[in-house]
């Protein structure tokens, strides 16, 4: 068997206090997590539980205070070159058109511009943006910008996809559309995915496995649930099946107290 795509071993991240006299903040403590090659794993948890911190560690953007990261059996140092990262916030370059954004990664790798353009055009139509390549970002809707971001990452064919609440800002219909499209793209060419969300339904409907995190600070996984629903799935329809509801109830049982805790901490802060 080949090495797992991602192994997080005893990861802790402590940040220095933001003001003098403040307390250092431990976002996550002793987190161990393994993602198999081609596996779609969602990480859910209450607001402020350090989900993004884990993703930044896996991406190599953040060095953990303790613990280690292995990517396909190799210890990670520096940026994770095998990973594509889809950020929660707008991350595209607004001074570039849609197609120039999709081409950016190829341009950085020194690939011939003509070929880059051909491939970017292909990817734009694959994410449903045929003919919109020359639009600037402010001319596109939020959903379209997410599609551009997706194409920008997938064109580089990363083996690992890191997604930080990528569809959080979208309306429900657009969101389900994007979820289905992501699943279709993923099934065609299975990468390992770490999908961060606070939406349990989204997590269950898309993943092979759901990891539940405790409320922060010093957040850690408190439950893992395999999702053995059949694929291909339609994220809207699958939510109505009894199997889905059973899994949802089981996970929610574990999550409820943590969400409540997270909410109270949020209120206090």
């Amino acid at each position: 068997m080949s090495a797992p795509a991602v192994v997080l071993r005893d990861i802790s991240c402590t940040f220095p206090p933001s003001s003098r006299g403040g307390q250092p903040y431990t976002a996550v403590r002793d987190v161990s997590l393994t993602i198999a090659d081609g596996e779609f794993v969602s990480v859910v948890g209450p607001t402020g539980c350090g989900k993004s911190t884990l993703l930044n560690v896996t991406a190599g953007l953040l060095t953990p205070s303790t613990g280690s990261v292995d990517i396909f059996g190799e210890s990670l140092s520096g940026l994770n070159r095998r990973a594509g990262y889809m950020f929660q916030a707008e991350a595209l370059m607004p001074w570039r058109t849609a197609i120039q954004n999709v081409m950016a990664g190829l341009e950085m790798r020194g690939i011939d511009p003509v070929e880059s353009r051909t491939r970017a055009t292909e990817w734009l139509s694959r994410v449903g943006l045929r003919g919109r390549g020359d639009a600037y970002l402010h001319q596109l809707s939020g959903g379209m910008r997410k599609r551009v971001a997706l194409a920008q990452i997938l064109i580089l064919e990363p083996q690992i996809l890191l997604m930080d609440e990528p569809f959080g800002a979208l309306d429900v219909q657009t969101r389900q559309l994007m979820e289905n499209e992501l699943l279709a793209l993923w099934s065609a060419n299975r990468k390992s995915v770490i999908f961060i969300t606070h939406d349990l339904e989204e997590a269950i409907s898309m993943s092979d496995r759901v990891v539940v995190m405790s409320a922060g600070p010093a957040s850690r996984p408190i439950g893992e649930f395999p999702i053995d629903l059949p694929r291909p799935r339609d994220v809207a329809e699958i939510r109505l099946t009894p199997e889905f509801l059973k899994i949802h109830a089981a996970i929610w049982e574990t999550m409820r107290d943590e969400v409540l805790k997270g909410y109270q901490q949020h209120e206090r802060a």
Partner: peptide, 15 residues
């Protein structure tokens, strides 16, 4: 400079 745009460009492989 927007730190997210910067992080994104780094992840895409910018030198």
């Amino acid at each position: 400079v927007n730190p997210v745009v910067l992080a994104n460009a780094r992840m895409l492989g910018a030198s």
